[in-house]
Nucleic acid binder design. Structure first.
Lengths: 216, 216
DNA sequence: CAAAGTTAAACAAACATTTAATTTAATCAA
DNA sequence: TTGATTAAATTAAATGTTTGTTTAACTTTG
């Protein structure tokens, strides 16, 4: 007997507690290094509740991903289709949203990075599909800007998105290393987070403007 | 009883076989998802040989890292200190070496990415120290170029190296995704590797020249 | 009073590591 | 070269934990 839920259903407080605890532990120790006992202990619930609510450890991590991925595409589309803004404003907005989403949610994104690296994770197809859509949406936006004569012609969208994702993920995953190297140890975690969001956004904005707009 | 070895000692063929098999499996499945049984089976040796030669699974992964990290710093210094080349030639050389080292050794670098993400891995101090030295060497090079008036003044070295490392790691770790998206499925693994090394190098060279040299 | 929630205990399978027995290889005096 | 001696290499089997999951009993709730 077991009480699994469909995608559209909402989670009760205990389920949310399990999801959050699992996300935190998967992020810092990895999927296989985290036992269901660890998760149950972190969430303060009985071990059996995880099977009861989610079926298995594997289905639990799937639920975590589904819970997060759903609205990102909508936000992305909304940002890039906003015709009240110029292309450059929308590019800035895209970069800032992107960076904030990654650096602002280190736990989930560390999990995602790890899953991408691992070839045999079941959630990988899910991630792959969602990435592909992100590439397409951004590619469409860049092409539109090129046709308007705003962005340079010779832009490699795949490489651009790789730099956007790669740089941000790298800074997020080595943020405490970054903190020490920049003498920012007096900052709290959320202060550091905000600092990194701003600095990384500005760095990437400059970078992309340099190749998308300046010099022929 | 056990036959562990110091750093300076060379590995016998059977030890090398174990190291290579472990690197391959750790890279594709992760440290905790790989059992010593898997490693022993992959290498075609008895399970007990791993404890016999390396002491434990944890010490085995340490040996893998030590085996790789040692000469990278030397290569880096050699590249940047070559006075027969201009600063721009040395920058290009740095980028190409960097990219080739990461994309050319996906197994090891996936392992390294994973270890960096994971806070509780013992090898992390080792990685941290070696990264810090890399930042310092590159920082010194950029500063020298700035004093010569070749590179722009307002360059954030931390962010630059983050883009260099982040972009390359991202492309390496999502290379098969990249292959499908670029319709390059006819390429063999090593052909894809060479393609990615060249394209990523060129992308990063353009990117860095755009902010280091062009426009005031 | 039935369904949902919750629990401690039990389960078999997989895990890293160790043991003790056996084979291989090297050394060296005769 | 031979045969004895010793250390290293190798093995199958066993060890004791830890793993994810299930069970069956119990409590709460509508």
């Amino acid at each position: 007997m077991c009480a699994q839920f469909d995608l559209h259903m909402e989670y009760n407080p205990k389920q949310l507690l399990i999801l959050e605890s699992a996300e935190k532990l998967f992020a810092s120790h990895g999927f296989h290094a985290t036992s269901v006992r660890d998760i149950a202990h972190e969430a303060g619930v009985n071990i059996a509740m995880i099977s009861y609510y989610f079926g298995s450890k594997e289905k639990l991590i799937e639920s975590i991903f589904l819970k997060r991925i759903i609205n990102w595409k909508a936000i992305l589309n909304e940002t890039l289709a906003d015709n009240s803004k110029t292309y450059i404003e929308r590019l800035d907005s895209l970069i800032e949203n992107f960076v904030r989403r990654i650096i602002g949610n280190p736990c989930f994104n560390l999990m995602m990075m790890r899953a991408q690296i691992q070839a045999d994770m079941l959630v990988n197809d899910l991630i792959h599909e969602s990435k592909k859509e992100v590439y397409e949406v951004i590619g469409t936006f860049i092409n539109a800007g090129q046709e308007q004569g705003i962005f340079n012609k010779d832009v490699d969208v795949l490489m651009m998105v790789a730099t956007l994702t790669g740089t941000t993920n790298h800074i997020m995953s080595t943020r405490h290393h970054f903190q020490r190297m920049s003498n920012l140890e007096h900052l709290t975690d959320s202060e550091l987070q905000e600092y990194l969001i701003i600095h990384t956004s500005n760095h990437l904005k400059n970078l992309f403007k340099a190749i998308l707009i300046h010099e022929a």
